[in-house]
Design a protein around this nucleic acid. Structure first.
Length: 615
RNA sequence: CGGGGCGUAGCGCAGCCUGGUAGCGCACCUGCCUUGGGAGCAGGGGGUCGGAGGUUCGAAUCCUCUCGCCCCGACCA
């Protein structure tokens, strides 16, 4: 793990100063540089750094952030879902961590560090040793005692609190850590986006009662908003499915990006935003239109999908009702009806059925239930329980499968031809649906979940006996909240959101360096001197600077600079120098400005300060 | 878990079908040359062809097993 090793004074040419213990505000010696006690140096020479950029995209990297993090030398894979954080990538990770620490400290949370190796006993106490499944990586120590790698730390933190907190007067308490976690994902992918080993900030709040827990929750919610805003990210805090707890006490923080794994919706006229898993759809009173057509069979040879059937019968998917055969974890098989162009929201259905998960029935089951191969299921004559989306209630004369190979029914009508056991809101919300709060329009986005705040209640405090005495001297079970931020994923999502065809475009607050100084020709003394001077001046002013002093052709250096995405690039070349200028190019806009040599450092410092203060 | 695909130099790939002394581009090293958008020339180093077993006179190539990695996944709605 990172964190405790004392870091490390780096000296090239001047090894005698290796015990230099702190970071001086200003120094004049251009050959002396170091990594501070925070393991971040202000300056680095590319020629002496480890920044292995790749011209080509590694074959196994699917999403941009993964590709670019590999190409920019930020990460290297060690095993499936397990990565080295290379120096350049680590700097960005540390930036996010620093912002997280500052904001959590400000919100009154207290940092701790819990072990990666968790004894089985704690997990048995909470019952999760049995429940957690294969994602929990278990192992034995030399004495054959059971352990697991912590995928999250409710058990451990609850243990801390029950052992150390006795009185309501010690509350509220909010403990957080930044730790490497391990979840043995079935399919790790997308680089840091979905790894097995990953750096996570997790926090846990403890309060005497519900009201206190709500206050803690709100505080964290606010802190999270600041954190992601300070990271320079476009995000939404959305209502998430909170499972058994209910209410609006679960929010996910979603970085907006096309490639996001989660669908979210937000209202264009009020504050409502939700994960599509949760987003409700409000329908007014639904009136079933009168049937106009007779039920009739139509041949639909080999037309299995909604699109094919609609095309073949020269109608639109909206005129079809699709029938999904679904199995539950409680061993029930039901049929679910949706308008042809709609998608089932499995979470809503599971809630409705009171089960934990549902799954589409396998081919054999479909055959058994409907008597036809999949693709031709319909409600008419079905023996299983039938649920239908509210929208279906407003349909008449529609088309469904006929439970017979290569055959559909047309002119199908509710009541007359079949009956539905339950109508409910079962479909996925889509762009343009009405907002359940204000009736405005919902806009849909893709998002990457980078943070989650959750009111836990007493699940762990109760099973593990975390109680304090209240002012009446009575035992009270603590009310908990838990709050996570994926640190690596935050960096990855920042790249997902901020890149172009040339590479990364880091938001300045989390950029590994603020400025890259590119020497066009390091063999030209005037160029070298001017670049060295700027490099020294910038560091003296606290600007994190990468000096590209490599003896490479300018073209490769520019390409590399674009790739690694440092927000400000200063080109030092003989051409500009003749006029007394350096050239500033902003990565984001591509805008170029001439900087008079004498004022360059000052102007850059101002720009960096402004960017950091803007948030 | 089920299905599919791929493992050949650091990276990206060809060669495999039809067995016969392992190749290309980039990267790397040396020298020359060049220095404002991934230059050029010349020379050079580097591969248990993922692993094990088998077939064969002979296996990167055919067969079996195994490991690793990647992708997809349920009338896709």
């Amino acid at each position: 793990m990172h964190g405790e090793s004392p870091h490390i004074v780096f000296l090239h040419f001047a090894c005698g100063y290796a015990s230099f213990p702190y970071l001086p505000r200003i120094f004049g010696h251009p050959f002396l540089y170091f990594i501070s006690s925070e393991s971040r140096g202000l300056g680095m020479r590319w020629s002496e750094y480890l920044l292995p950029t790749l011209k080509e995209t590694p074959a196994d990297a699917e999403v941009v952030s993964h590709q670019l993090m590999m190409r920019a030398g930020m990460i290297r894979k060690v095993a499936a879902g397990i990565y080295n954080y290379m120096p350049f990538g680590l700097r960005s990770i540390r930036k996010v961590e620093t912002i997280v620490r500052e904001e959590l400290d400000r919100a009154g949370a207290i940092e701790v560090l819990m072990p990666m190796a968790n004894p089985a006993e704690l997990w048995q106490e909470s019952g999760r040793w049995e429940k957690y499944g294969k994602e929990l990586l278990r192992f034995k120590d030399r004495k054959d005692a059971d352990f697991c790698m912590g995928p999250t730390h409710e058990e451990v933190v609850t243990d801390i609190v029950r052992n150390t907190v006795r009185s309501y007067r010690q509350l509220p308490l909010n403990l957080y850590q930044i730790q490497t976690k391990f979840r043995d994902e079935i399919r790790p992918r997308f680089g840091l986006m979905r790894g097995r080993e990953f750096i996570m900030k997790d926090a846990y709040s403890f309060d005497l009662d519900d009201a206190g827990a709500d206050a803690s929750y709100t505080k964290m919610y606010q802190a999270y908003r600041r954190i992601f805003a300070r990271c320079g990210l476009k995000f939404r805090a959305v209502e998430a499915d909170s499972g058994a707890i209910g209410g609006s006490f679960s929010h996910e923080f979603m970085v907006l990006a096309e490639s996001g794994e989660d669908g979210i919706v937000s209202c264009d006229s009020c504050e409502y935003a939700a994960n599509v898993e949760k987003a409700e759809i409000r329908m007014g009173d639904v009136v079933t239109p009168a049937a106009a057509e007779e039920l009739r069979k139509v041949e639909t040879p080999a037309r299995k999908t909604i699109e094919d059937v609609a095309l073949f019968l020269e109608t639109s998917p909206q005129r079809l009702v699709k029938t999904l055969i679904v199995e539950t974890d409680t061993d029930e098989t039901v049929a679910v009806l949706l308008r042809g162009d709609r998608e089932l929201n499995e979470i809503k259905l599971a809630h409705r059925l009171g089960c934990t998960w549902i799954t589409l029935a396998p081919e054999e089951k479909v055959l058994k239930v409907t008597g036809a191969p999949s693709g031709f299921a319909g409600p008419v004559g079905l023996k299983v329980r039938i649920l239908a989306d509210l929208e279906v209630q407003g349909m008449a004369d529609f088309i469904t499968g006929a439970n017979e190979k290569d055959t559909h029914f047309a002119g199908v009508n509710l009541g007359r031809d079949f009956t539905v056991d339950t109508f409910a809101d079962l479909r996925q919300a889509v762009n343009g649906d009405p907002c359940p709060r204000c009736g405005g329009k919902l806009e849909s986005w893709r998002g990457i979940e980078v943070g989650h705040v959750f009111k836990l209640g007493t699940k762990y405090s109760e099973s593990m006996g975390a109680t304090v005495l209240d002012d009446q001297g009575k035992d009270r079970t603590l009310v908990m909240g838990c709050y996570g931020i994926g640190i690596g994923r935050t960096v990855a999502s920042a790249i997902e959101q901020n890149h172009d065809e040339n590479g990364i475009i880091f938001p300045l607050p989390i950029a590994p360096f603020h400025v890259v100084v590119t020497m066009v020709n390091p063999n030209d003394d005037s160029v070298r001197d001017a670049a060295e001077k700027l490099y020294a001046d910038l560091q003296a002013a606290g600007v994190e600077t990468l000096l590209d002093d490599r003896d490479e052709r300018p073209g490769s250096k520019f390409k590399d600079a674009d790739l690694i995405g440092i927000p400000l690039r200063v080109t030092v070349g003989a051409r500009g120098l003749k006029e007394g200028n350096l050239e500033l190019q902003e990565r984001q806009s591509g805008e170029r400005t001439l900087l008079p040599v004498g004022e360059a450092a000052t102007l850059l410092v101002e720009q960096v300060r402004a960017a950091l203060a803007a948030r």
